[in-house]
Nucleic acid binder design. Structure first.
Lengths: 146, 146
DNA sequence: AAGATACCCTACTATAGCGACAGGGATACT
DNA sequence: AGTATCCCTGTCGCTATAGTAGGGTATCTT
């Protein structure tokens, strides 16, 4: 069970956008630089987020990307779904009669496990992340000041 | 995010052992047959469960495998841990100063997600599974009887 | 007009892990 | 003697991930 870099990078990119929301669009170059990624790879990720409607874009010079909705309205699950896909944890292959009762019994547990993980993502928005980030930043600044 | 067959097969094998607990040891051949696996593959899985102390074995003719502890004392998390390893969702690579605050903020979420999934496994024992199984079996039997 | 930038499409490589099979030999119990 | 566990090794194919690379078009700002 692992989380891919796609989701990780993508989520962080979205967090960047949330943090810079009022300073106008963020270009691919900037996003890629902060993630230490090639522009091409970043393009692939952000492109999908755009097609999915989580991000909007501004073309031309000084263009770039913006969140399509306010950060409170974008959950981490939204991002996950776009980048990771909705593929289930464990496919149940039973189309006809299922002899595999034991499998079905365990199946229920896997499903529960998956749902538990997803519900964490569902209950967390980009606004939450941004808040955590700023709080952390403030805490560190305070340490240095004192 | 996916669950591997190792965990799935392993858990089902353990369920088999739980269900046949009183009928003496279950041989590899039987386990493999019920999982529709090669004996060799089953051997690899059960072998690890044995080394980990979840399963005990009886050598020689009429030998086989048994649960090492009562089913109530074996959680699905125990099994997961043995077969999947304790590797976290996302390793934090920061050993020194970490410039990646955004990453750390997201890291916390991934961790929470992982914990949520694991807590489902922790709260479920083989005895629970066996109970579900028997209940289901009884329900189906009733359907056919009526 | 020039430059910056999004947008799109394709191809390519490398690696790692998973899923599984195969064989053989030693040990232990009935 | 026969049935099993036990243990070690090697092989194979597949798939997904994780990226890189290149080149072209459209659109906006300055």
């Amino acid at each position: 069970m692992k989380l891919t870099t796609k989701t990780r990078y993508g989520t962080r990119a979205m967090l960047e956008l949330a943090l810079h929301q009022e300073e106008g669009p963020l270009s691919l170059g900037e996003i890629a630089a902060r993630q230490e990624l090639s522009e091409k790879y970043a393009e692939a990720l952000v492109g999908r987020l755009r097609v999915a409607g989580l991000v909007s874009s501004v073309r031309g010079a000084q263009g770039g990307y913006l969140l399509a909705r306010p950060p409170e309205a974008i959950s981490l699950y939204d991002i996950y779904l776009v980048l990771e896909g909705a593929e289930p944890f464990v496919p149940c292959s039973a189309e006809r009669d299922c002899e595999r009762w034991d499998a079905c019994v365990t199946q229920a547990v896997w499903q529960e496990m998956y749902d538990a993980a997803m519900s964490v993502l569902r209950n967390r928005t980009l606004a939450d992340l941004a808040r955590s980030y700023r709080r952390k930043q403030a805490a560190v600044a305070a340490t240095y000041t004192i």
